[in-house]
């Protein structure tokens, strides 16, 4: 794979160090450290409830961490809100997509970052034009620019959420189960998009349940279980069964099962 992903002379694009988050008594994320290099796809695996989404939401500013540090390009980053994360070019495709169902594609794509005219009014035609441009690239069949996204298919909604993350020049992209709602062909399109973004030097955290896809798309994979990091491996050096073992047993390959 890319040597940027394996060579460790440059600082990582992003590093999460000793991250912690608890909800009531549940330690959703328990002292987890994980990093990401430019042009790398870093898979995050684990059962439902393992803490993958919570870990990523601390990076995207959706949740405030209880402890731990975030570094971007080697410097400590203060990320306490989604706005903070956007300043560091961190974009997220949330598992829930986080779309306002009553608004159309363009309004969702630019939500919180609207384009305005000289008088400060929303420039809806310009936003629609930009949306058409990016959708032509991501989902050429997309036509329903004036429909609230509630009326779109799962794949169309997903493409709106992806367009939002890609449009604003992400350097760090978090994709939380981006293919969960998609069919085979659409999933393939997402895989191609990931390859393209990778070539542009974007670092991607990819949460996915499909171990086969993770093997194909990712450079490294981290496995979480019960809020803890089981381990991080280079996907070329492990088999699918090894990954499965990590997820189910919570043991790194080679370690004896307890």
């Amino acid at each position: 794979m890319l040597d940027t992903a394996t060579e460790r002379s440059a600082p990582p694009l992003c590093e999460l160090r000793d991250m912690q988050k608890a909800f009531g008594g549940i330690r959703a994320v328990d002292h987890v450290s994980i990093d990401l290099y430019p042009g790398e796809v870093h898979g995050v695996l684990g059962h439902n409830g393992a803490g993958k989404s919570v870990l990523m939401k601390m990076l995207s500013g959706a949740y405030q961490r209880d402890g731990g540090q975030i570094f971007v390009n080697g410097e400590e980053a203060e990320i306490n809100s989604p706005r903070d994360a956007r300043k560091y070019n961190i974009e997220t495709i949330y598992q829930t997509l986080a779309l306002a169902d009553n608004l159309d594609a363009a309004a969702n794509l630019f939500l919180g970052r609207e384009l305005v005219t000289r008088t400060g009014m929303l420039n809806d035609p310009l936003m629609e034009a930009e949306t058409r441009k990016i959708m032509a690239r991501l989902n050429p069949n997309f036509r329903r620019y004036h429909t609230p996204v509630a009326g779109l298919s799962g794949g169309q909604r997903q493409s709106v959420a992806i367009a939002r993350a890609v449009y604003f020049n992400a350097k760090i992209l978090i994709m939380d189960e981006p293919t969960a709602a998609l069919g085979v062909q659409e999933t393939q399109m997402v895989a191609e998009l990931i390859q393209e973004l990778k070539r542009q030097g974007i670092g991607i955290f990819l949460i996915d349940h499909d171990i086969h896809a993770v093997k194909q798309l990712c450079d490294r994979a981290s496995v979480m279980k019960n809020g803890k990091l089981v381990g991080t491996v280079k996907v070329d050096e492990v088999t699918e069964d090894d990954l499965l073992g990590m997820i189910i047993l919570g043991k790194k390959p080679g370690e004896a099962a307890a």
Partner: peptide
């Protein structure tokens, strides 16, 4: 309602409060 950020945020928040917050509103 139709031409300002305030209005857009009012409707976005009504449609999905969580999404609005994640968008930095």
């Amino acid at each position: 309602a139709k031409r300002t950020r305030l209005g857009r945020y009012i409707f976005a928040t009504g449609g999905n409060p969580e999404a609005a917050e994640l968008a930095g509103i």
